[in-house]
Design a protein around this nucleic acid. Structure first.
Lengths: 206, 206
DNA sequence: GTAGCATTCAAACGGCCGTTTCAGACCCCT
DNA sequence: AGGGGTCTGAAACGGCCGTTTGAATGCTAC
């Protein structure tokens, strides 16, 4: 992280991600970001135009990949026969888990994402819905086929709950403390196992 | 809200709650708060000592009530016979819903609570766990009796997921847009109905 | 090698931040 | 009427904020 062979832009994005995760968008200043990135203060406005645009770029960098992986996993799950709800949930959740575990700051990003939900910012919401909308639609269709008796609107509500619980689990909001012998990776993986069992049963509720 | 017959302290707490919900703790300034409360800037430091302490008081004012109501509802649910999981979930969730619907800013408070989760601030977490811990323990015991085959740790995970999904639903994080004809109250009530069905099934998962 | 462009740099801009100060207003008690 | 609290008021404190400037630097192409 922040080693010299990354470009100025990349170093800023990495440092911003870390600091936004830790202190929030308003709480992390460009002076902190540029200091952590080992970069001149003016570089942010030179490369990104403004702080707000930097925030957007932090999202764009990760979300494109995340959504592509989700759709890949969905296609792969649908190719097999007798695809279960659990398979679909894994296709949705696994890419988020992988992202949260990657070495280069994905763990910080999932926390930034949770902050974005909390912000309730209209521009950010539109950005997220533009980036997520078509993915949610495809998953909704796949779930719908496997839950033929479930009302379509009810399914939307339940998928929304799953997305919320996933955000919560990935961002480590919960009150469950990580045991000292357990790595952050292992903790998150356990959380996801529980979440998948829970969500599959919740989706099947009559 | 903020009418003159409330005390200066109460007006500050109400305005702070609204603005913290909308802009976050770092994003809402004491100048905005005191202006909205129609109160002198120095009144915050006079009555609360500091901004950080004001934040704590915003929580204390609501959480004591919320937890007391939850325990009341739990006692009432346990007095009946054949108490179901759904009864317990209602005892846990209903007071939060009521709070979110009350006229005097409870809707803002649940969003402030969600912000607190996102903050990941150690002092705030300790404060919340001190205030929530004993409540969670009592609910865990009640759920545990009705789910005798479920591993105790697994139950903790699942209750944590329920709490997360509840926070998510109350704070209206979801992507589901409120339809134009539906009031914010009705929207939240619908969300809770879905959540209870979903959570009951999730808790029962083998 | 030098023109032209992209990038970095230190410094400064006006503006808002949380907090403090201290003078005045208010109110209750004798 | 006057003294002693509690509370409010306007103003100022140093400090950090996001952004802009303009000069210095590096690099590429001729």
């Amino acid at each position: 992280m922040n080693t010299q062979h990354f470009s100025t832009k990349e170093r800023i994005l990495g440092a911003a991600e870390q600091l936004f995760a830790r202190h929030g968008f308003a709480g992390a200043s460009l002076r902190q970001v540029t200091a952590a990135a080992n970069v001149n203060l003016a570089a942010v406005n030179y490369h990104f135009g403004s702080k707000e645009n930097l925030i957007n770029e932090v999202f764009r960098r990760r979300l494109d990949d995340l959504n592509a992986h989700r759709l890949d996993e969905l296609d792969r799950a649908l190719q097999g026969e007798n695809t279960t709800l659990e398979d679909l949930l894994v296709a949705f959740i696994r890419p988020a888990l992988d992202l949260s575990l990657d070495r280069s700051g994905g763990g910080a990003f999932v926390r930034v994402l949770a902050r974005a939900y909390a912000e309730h910012n209209d521009a950010l919401r539109k950005f997220l819905s533009d980036n997520y909308g078509h993915v949610m639609k495809r998953f909704h269709g796949a779930f719908s086929e496997r839950l033929p008796t479930l009302d379509k609107e009810e399914l939307y509500w339940r998928l929304d709950i799953v997305a919320g619980a996933l955000t919560y689990a990935m961002a480590d909001f919960g009150v469950i403390k990580r045991k000292s012998g357990v790595s952050e990776q292992a903790h998150r993986e356990r959380a996801v196992e529980h979440l998948i069992r829970f969500a599959a049963a919740g989706l099947r509720a009559s």
